[in-house]
Amino acid sequence: MIEATALTKRYGPKTAVEDLSFTVRPGVVTGFLGPNGAGKSTTMRMLLGLDTPTSGRALVNGKSYADHPAPLHEVGAMLEARAIHTGRSAFNHLLALAATTGIPRSRVEEVIELVGLGDVARKRAGSFSLGMGQRLGIASALLGDPATVILDEPVNGLDPEGILWIRNLLKSLAAEGRTIFVSSHLMSEMALTAEHLIIVGRGRLIADTSVAEFTRQASSDTVRVRTPDAGLLRAQLSGPDVTVTSAESGVLNVTGLDSEQIGRIAAEHGVVLYELTPQHASLEEAFMELTRDAVEYQAAVPAAETAVAEGTAV
């Protein structure tokens, strides 16, 4: 269980996290989503007491992290895959961490096998690929058999097999009743792994919702209609929950009615249709739409394209 209450972090004049409140519950994988620079890593560092919040507070399993007498057994975390001394072997790295709470050598060997690093455990961590570094980071997170697991961008740099492995690992950890909090900037990945989503942008909470709910909202579909009688059809389609936009002449984008309803209305009024196409917004598009205003570093889009993009309500 993780509870953040009005968490705020400022670095000088820059606000990294602002008034962020959320709860992460046990038993499910909770995705922590946001564009780069949204404050995800800062929030996770505050959960672990590495950064002190400017105001607000973060509790993990009912206490602030530093107040746990045996933190590795409460919370396992991987903040960056590279939180490892490059000159030390994976085995010795884990052994040194394990020693702080008296975790036995046999558990160190067990987590090494669990993450599939058995063959390279005695090599210097500096020689590890990004994917191996991620696996070692996950091994250190699981070392103390913790009730809560916090992982920052665990799929970064993994090959497809590794991504599948993490996905299954996280789900089974959640099924064991643990609290799993995973950050990502990829909506598509979270849709496959997480059950709940906490979405942030520019350090603020944008959405706290289930994946199912988010998916349902995202697929509020638009129907593209091409007709020579756009004006007439537009008038007939209008209703309280219906939005009709037009980006080019002879083309209408209709939300609030499905293609069957539009086809029937057109037939009733003798309107000729050239095209009647349902447009599905992908989860990634829905996510980008949601966080558009909150993207820290945005690529400049030529003015003409922007106009068209705004016309076609997705």
Partner: peptide
Amino acid sequence: STLPTTAVVVPRGRVTQVRVLTSEWIK
């Protein structure tokens, strides 16, 4: 392995100065 097994029972020890000394000695 596909499932996180915890065959080893992980003792829930507290952080003590002596344990931190052991850790730093290993490092």
